[in-house]
Design a protein around this nucleic acid. Structure first.
Lengths: 240, 240
DNA sequence: AGAATATTTATTGTCGACAATAAAAATACA
DNA sequence: TGTATTTTTATTGTCGACAATAAATATTCT
């Protein structure tokens, strides 16, 4: 699995403007964490980050506080900071919340979407189609995430949009872990489910949107659970 | 309305230990924001805070970043930081999410509660009863919040618990605004609804828990909306 | 006098340095 | 040799100072 796909190059000598430092560290770290470029549980060194971005530790620290607030990083007081481990014991909590947010956001999108929302959603669906055809797994994962976030935005409830975004991000790490190109019949199935979802949102059929979202969520949850189970079986003899 | 109830005194000359500074600022600010001791929209001065707590600006700043992450404070880059205004135009989003979280957390509590959970919930309900009898509005608001958070914790889904806590905190500000002692028949009604809720959780009746939570949420939403409408009428001639 | 421009002022974002902390390494002891 | 104690080391949390920013004020020009 190639993890070195979209690591953004820093501008090393180009002096960043005031206030850009925290943002740069935050964005880069976030990207690297979600793409598993940084291994869950691995330490994050303030000093090295400061050197890497050519800034002092103060803005790096502020970026860490932000990341910690979103649960992407865990700070051990007076010790060090690590990339947030994936919380396998509580995955069922995650799946429960993810499913509910799929349903709620898709329902609300059906209720509140404008024509502009629909067009933006369709555009992302086209992007997803291209990624599937190109068998570009990282792109599929990213576009899929943006597709569902855009639907949530059409629903116009920031509380749901925020939680859903966080859940989908956490899900990105899981997908990156398990979603090698094993099986590319599945993405095609998602493609059709997405089309059905768009159709329901288009005709503002709330019940249908709910049903389809629920089925879609179950599909994805079952899929990830299958991957994990297979993985556990492979690692059956290894101590944890 | 007395807002100077539980403003915690700082220990002025007692040197705080390393790492306690951020926490102290964060906790105090949070408390003051949620109790409306600090007016929504009012500026938050880093320098004054640093002086007040006898620390430098660096830890104050980290506390601000945390508060900003939770939406309790809004930072205008290169300008200043203000206490987050209450977002009246989007209150319906808030009520929608609040109602859903009431339902979901109470359902899950009925499904997953242990005997210890039940006892803790009952203890908080006793505290609420005392606050009602003492007509102590600030205590009622705070204990009520803790009561529902504890139920959410019994449901064992941190995603819901986190979102619900944030929503209840936001709600605290609304209640403080409108919930003068006008009407103390209402708290008594909540008292009975809480009892019903506990009973449903006790006998693990998920459907009943859902129904009661939904009714409870509707009750509260309607109540706040009534307060706001009355308030708007009073202020009808004033420019906003 | 009124608008455009320059200057002052207040406050932020960042820096480099230093002391507190907790683990790791080294030493003393049984 | 194995355990308790001290010393070293790595890294954090905090500080005081300084430069960048944008508003507020003063100044110039037509």
């Amino acid at each position: 699995m190639s993890l070195e796909d979209t690591v953004p190059a820093q501008i090393p000598e180009a002096k960043r403007k005031r206030g850009q430092g925290v943002g740069a560290v935050y964005d880069t770290l976030r990207h690297e964490i979600l793409n598993l470029t940084l291994e869950p549980g691995s330490p994050v060194d303030e000093v090295k980050l400061a050197e890497r971005f050519g800034i002092s530790r103060t803005p790096v620290r502020e970026a860490m506080v932000k990341l910690a607030g979103e649960g992407l990083v865990v700070t051990l007081p007076n010790r060090f900071t690590i990339v947030a481990p994936i919380d396998f014991p509580n995955l069922s909590q995650f799946f429960d919340a993810l499913s509910l947010m799929y349903r709620v956001t898709t329902r609300l999108a059906a209720a509140n979407r404008t024509d502009d929302d629909l067009e933006a959603i369709r555009e992302l669906q086209r992007g997803y189609t291209h990624a599937v055809e190109a068998r570009d797994v990282p792109a599929m994962i990213e576009v899929n995430r943006n597709f569902h976030v855009r639907i949530a935005q059409a629903g116009r409830n920031r509380y749901y949009t925020d939680l859903f975004s966080r859940l989908l991000d956490e899900g990105r790490r899981l997908l990156r872990l398990y979603y090698s190109s094993h099986n590319d019949a599945l993405p095609r199935m998602y493609l059709q489910e997405h089309e059905d979802m768009i159709a329901a949102i288009d005709r503002q059929d709330i019940d249908a949107a709910d049903r389809i979202a629920q089925a879609h969520a179950q599909q994805i949850v079952r899929q990830i659970q299958t991957y994990i189970t297979e993985d556990r079986r492979l690692n059956a003899g290894i101590s944890l």
